[in-house]
Structure formats: structure tokens, C-alpha cells
Design a protein around this nucleic acid. Structure first.
Length: 113
DNA sequence: CGGATGACGGGTC
DNA sequence: AGACCCGCCATCC
């Protein structure tokens, strides 16, 4: 993890999010040893669609469980459809039962220490 | 080089 | 609960 570029660390964590679970931008930023904030994580993910590797960026929402990145998936409801395809209930652009579906990336990082 | 911008978050009221 | 402000920093003119 340490030798990877910050962007690769973000990608690695997002790729590690299990199906049917979600996390937040701030949680990812906090799990990585970086001075970057949650905002930068969102900025990186906004470009992730150009990457050769498929990044499940739809599993990343903001701290309130709101699908703030929905405008970057082409179709306006593409993000929501991908989440619902994994069994996640989305109501009014917000992940239902977000607190319970939340996947903390810090636990994943700790496995490699 | 500097100001504006943004898939954010924490704090305050 | 919800509106608001302010710090954050990579990126883009």
C-alpha cells in the first residue's frame, strides 16, 4: 500500500468495497495516509471513468449517504440503478439504511498492517 | 502564477 | 433537522 500512488490507493479501496455495501469520500480519505481531503477523493473519482480498470465508484457517496456524484455516470439515474442492482435501496437520491450498509475502509487497511 | 472550482466534511446556530 | 460557513487541496483556466 505504501509504495502505491495516492490515486492507486484510492482505486484499491474503492475496488475493495463489497457488493451491496457503500462508503463515503471522507472515509476513504481518512483511511489513506494523505493530506488529501474528501473533496480530492471525489475529484479523483470523477475522472476514474477514463481508467482502463473498472472502478465501482457508484458505491461511494457522501457522508449523508446522498448520491452526489450521480451526474457523472452519463445517464442521470445510472448510479442509482447500479446500486439497486446490488440490492441497495435508494430513496430520493439517498441510500436507505446507509449507516448499516456503510463499509469502513479503515478496517480493510488495518488488515495489511 | 493566482484565482476559481468542486463526486466533501466538520462545526455552529 | 436543516441551513450555513469555512477549511481543505488537486486541477483548470
Amino acid at each position: 500500500m505504501k509504495n502505491l500512488d495516492k490515486i492507486d490507493q484510492i482505486y484499491a479501496l474503492v475496488l475493495a468495497i463489497p457488493e451491496g455495501r457503500v462508503t463515503s469520500y471522507g472515509a476513504i480519505a481518512g483511511a489513506i495516509n494523505t493530506k488529501m481531503g474528501a473533496r480530492q477523493v471525489g475529484l479523483i473519482l470523477s475522472k476514474s471513468h477514463n481508467e482502463p480498470v473498472k472502478i465501482p465508484a457508484h458505491r461511494v457517496v457522501n457522508r449523508n449517504g446522498v448520491l452526489t456524484g450521480k451526474f457523472h455516470f452519463g445517464e442521470i439515474d445510472e448510479m442509482q440503478k447500479r446500486l439497486e442492482a446490488e440490492g441497495i435501496v435508494v430513496e430520493n437520491d439517498t441510500v436507505k439504511d446507509f449507516k448499516n450498509l456503510f463499509w469502513d475502509p479503515i478496517e480493510y487497511v488495518n488488515l495489511f498492517c
